[in-house]
Nucleic acid binder design. Structure first.
Length: 803
RNA sequence: GCCGAAGUGGCGGAACUGGCAGACGCGCUGGACUCAAAAUCCAGUGAAGCUAAAACUUCGUGUGGGUUCGAGUCCCACCUUCGGUACCA
């Protein structure tokens, strides 16, 4: 019989939808399992193979859990606000409010063909006022908790997007959305979320959360916790202090100069009149320099002397104060003590400007001979007064303690992480729910007045003014002060798209309940998420922001957990012809074509067969046919006359139960490629042995179901079972049925294989040895040699070592 | 530069705690079926050597060393690719 995948897939998709097979009872489920995948941005181009790869792998896991008896909730939604959507709308000259619903409809149509176990009754669309009302509400809760503030500071400005960006959205000095647009620094007043207040918790929890290690490492590096000390340096002849941060207080005696970032506020004060011109010149240039050149490590160091000197508190020596752009205003205190002997950057700078280099750490405890080379490791202190001879790790503590008594040093932990700049000067996002009143200042909108609706306007293009297009919609901007009632103005920025996605999964189970963002009881039942699968490109974006938001909501008593995901696994990337799939490379694959040609089951399995799910794979058409043939063979099983046989020979039992065992554990560890290989082997066996037992076919169908849901349902039905195969329980393997009576052991001489023979399982070492020595090939090979020793491994091998 | 992952047939990839390298699939070769082709089925398929054929021998998991009776797997040094990060004091 022909494998008419089209009919089969349509039939079962309809069945699932009509019977609400994939809609668990969220209030009464006994055994909840929340299976989450990263919701897509609904692009106009439609569903991408990358999306489908991510979804399919997650879906297989969800279906697998379901067949283990869980009530699985597997929702989907659309991350439809944001610059990406808006830029596309601008490009194609269609208003985002018209374009996005079309895209969502198209995505929905495509997704419904892919055999995914979505609960379509709980869809989130971030642009729906019923959703973004609560996004704004979360903003207000954080504001009330003191986690939101407004500050004028140098922020990242993308000249292409014409908006500010958070640090996480600047990739290598370029805009996340425009990989060839350099981000500029602009001094603007913006809203920030105090994510740094949670820096330590974000960092520490990484030690126990069950996430892919590479994701955790990325976050660890981004948060960049470093332990050290702050030390105060006084300035000669001026009543000012310079505070520095260092992780190496043990090298204090080797500090031969200081460096301030060009933006440091003390710079004008420290500059002597004779140096003024040079310094101002340098500062001007440095600030103007774009990020890329400034951060280019390979270029020569530049800097300028201020004319002032500081006192090294260790030995009261005078050290010159310099300004250089290798010191960053955004990190630590924006000033350093430079220890050229033991820091590569200081070393380079000192060489360039002929500054003194004093060795204070050496491996031996004695000064190095010959020309002094950079050494940035640990060691023994020299040239350090009373601390000489001390180990650097002890000296780190002692020196700070010593200075602390004088009140000029303290231990300090610094983070690389910066506060999250949340405002965007764009149109397509939730307006920030704040009001500016001349009398009362800046106030939050009353919660009862939410949502602050995004105004309809055709004049939504961003401009270079540093103001959002919303500022141009006068009628919308005008409002009344929530406190005094007089005329006031709405905040005209919208919030970052990553705020929308920071809490979408909190909303899913409560979709349809409109008086609260999250129903308490349902949230307690379903959250935190049991399994989250997604791309690692969000390691320091979405995955960091969402942890912060949950921690904040937790501390506000709004949710009962601080870590949103019990498990997170990053899937690999699909590449084609050695490259990431992208429009610019012209190697985009449209899943529709393949699904039309081979069916969703084939395409799903093919994607999973490419390689280990957590490592990704190389997309090439040629392999699809193999999976399609496999499913055709599966389909042809339906021509069998099934028997009720339930007693099988040892071989069949062994293969059956081993297959169940291995496939089940492969599903659990997301090794879908080997699970598929196992099922292929099993099918080959069934065909070779002409097995017609209904029971065996049933087990096979169940194991196949998570991978190829449509054909599995069809078969389930053909076997005479009613309802959905996904309401059945996966078979559990029985170890006692795995009977191997004979094992194939290897006989080696000096580690080289001479023969392979079948012996009964469980023979002891002596017996194996005897068999090996009686082997004809062995006899021939060792005839006149002396046996040194014999190594036997039970059920595996005998190795005869001869001279 | 630093951090991480990986390098296995013609290709995608298997190989549990060191113990039969190349599972499974693609491709290719030969055969069956066919007027022929496609599809399907059967057999073979790491390389070299030696054979009429088989048997057999040698080599073989990026490179070079090492540990071990035995290394794709462990250790050291290096090379390459991919990903992340980038003057973070």
């Amino acid at each position: 019989m022909k494998y008419s995948f089209k009919d089969i897939e349509e039939k079962w998709q309809k069945f699932w939808e009509e019977k609400k097979i994939n809609e668990p009872d969220l209030r009464n489920a006994k055994n909840p399992f929340y299976n989450l995948m990263m919701f897509p941005y609904p692009s106009a181009e439609g569903l991408h193979v990358g999306n489908l790869y991510a979804f399919t792998g997650s879906d297989i896991y969800g279906r697998f859990k379901r067949m283990q008896g869980y009530d699985v909730f597997e929702p989907i939604g659309f991350d439809a606000f944001g610059i990406h959507s808006e830029n596309y709308a601008i490009k194609t000259k269609r208003h985002p409010s018209k374009l996005i619903p079309q895209n969502i409809a198209n995505f929905t149509r495509q997704l419904k063909k892919c055999g995914l176990m979505f609960d379509w009754s709980h869809v989130v669309d971030t642009t729906d006022p019923k959703y973004y009302k609560w996004t704004q509400w979360i903003f207000l809760q954080l504001y009330k908790a003191g986690l939101v503030y407004r500050k004028k500071s140098p922020v990242n400005w993308c000249p292409e997007c014409k908006t500010v960006l958070a640090d996480e959205q600047v990739i290598g000095g370029k805009c996340e959305r425009h990989s060839d647009t350099e981000v500029e620094k602009r001094e603007l007043e913006q809203w920030f979320f105090k994510i740094t207040q949670y820096a330590d918790k974000l960092y520490e929890n990484l030690k126990w959360i069950d996430w892919s290690q590479n994701t955790k490492t990325a976050q660890e590096l981004w948060i960049g916790k470093s332990e050290g000390a702050q030390i105060i340096f006084s300035v000669k002849g001026i009543d000012e202090k310079i505070v520095v941060f260092t992780t190496r207080p043990d090298t204090l005696f080797g500090a031969t100069y200081m460096v301030l970032a060009p933006e440091h506020p003390l710079v004008p004060l420290l500059t002597t009149s004779d140096r003024k011109r040079e310094v101002e010149d340098y500062v001007q240039k440095a600030i103007k320099k774009d990020q890329i050149t400034r951060l280019d490590v390979t270029k020569e160091k530049t800097g300028v002397f201020t004319g002032s000197y500081a006192m090294n508190p260790a030995n009261n020596s005078e050290i010159p104060i310099w300004i250089a752009d290798y010191v960053l205003w955004g990190y630590g205190t924006g000033a350093i003590m430079a220890v050229p002997a033991h820091d590569s950057r200081d070393y380079e700078f000192a060489k360039q400007f002929n500054l003194p280099i004093i060795e204070v750490i050496s491996k031996t405890g004695k000064p190095s001979e010959g020309e002094l080379e950079l050494y940035d490791g640990e060691g023994i202190l020299i040239n350090s007064g009373e601390f000489n001879g001390m180990n650097s790790d002890i000296a780190k503590r002692k020196i700070v303690e010593h200075l602390n008594k004088k009140g000029i040093a303290e231990f300090k932990i610094n983070y690389r992480l910066h506060d999250w700049c949340i405002s965007r000067q764009r149109y397509w996002g939730p307006p920030i729910p704040m009001v500016h009143c001349d009398k009362c200042g800046i106030l939050p909108v009353n919660e009862n007045d939410l949502p602050v609706l995004l105004p309809e306007t055709d004049n939504y293009l961003p401009d270079d003014s540093g103001k959002s297009p919303l500022a141009r919609v006068e009628s919308w901007v005008e409002t009344t002060c929530p406190k005094c009632g007089s005329k006031a103005r709405k905040d005209t920025d919208v919030s970052d798209n990553f705020l929308d996605s920071a809490w979408y999964f909190l909303r899913y189970p409560s979709v349809g309940i409109d008086d609260v963002p999250m129903d308490k009881e349902i949230t307690r039942k379903w959250l935190p998420v049991d399994m989250y699968i997604g791309g690692n490109e969000h390691a320091v974006l979405h995955l960091m922001y969402t942890r912060f938001i949950c921690m904040a909501l937790h501390d506000l008593g709004l949710i009962h957990f601080e870590e949103p995901f019990k498990r997170f696994r990053a899937h690999g990337l699909i590449i084609k012809d050695g490259n990431k799939m992208s429009k610019s490379k012209g190697n985009i694959v449209n899943p529709d074509e393949y699904i039309d040609k081979y069916g969703a089951d084939t395409f799903r399995m093919y994607l999973m067969f490419l390689g280990p799910y957590q490592e990704g794979g190389d997309f090439r058409d040629s392999g699809i046919i193999g999976i399609h043939r496999f499913l055709e063979k599966v389909n042809s099983l339906s021509e069998l006359n099934f028997t009720d046989e339930t007693d099988f020979d040892d071989e069949t039992n062994t293969i059956l139960h081993q297959t169940i065992k291995v496939v089940t554990s492969d599903f659990e560890s997301l090794k879908y490629n080997t699970a598929i290989a196992r099922l292929m082997e099993f099918l080959n066996y069934i065909r070779e042995k002409n097995i017609t037992s209904k029971l065996i076919i049933k087990y096979f169908t169940q194991l196949l179901a998570p991978l190829a849901p449509h054909i599995a349902e069809e078969f389930w039905n053909k076997l005479g079972y009613s309802g959905s195969v996904f309401n059945s329980k996966l078979p559990v393997y029985d170890e006692s049925k795995i009977k191997i009576s004979n094992v194939n052991i290897v006989i080696q001489i000096n580690g080289k294989i001479k023969d392979r023979i079948d012996v009964p399982k469980g023979l002891d070492e002596k017996e194996l040895e005897k068999i090996a020595l009686e082997n004809e090939k062995v006899k021939a090979a060792i005839s006149n040699k002396i046996i040194n020793k014999i190594i036997t491994v039970k059920d595996k091998l005998v190795n005869i070592v001869v001279k």
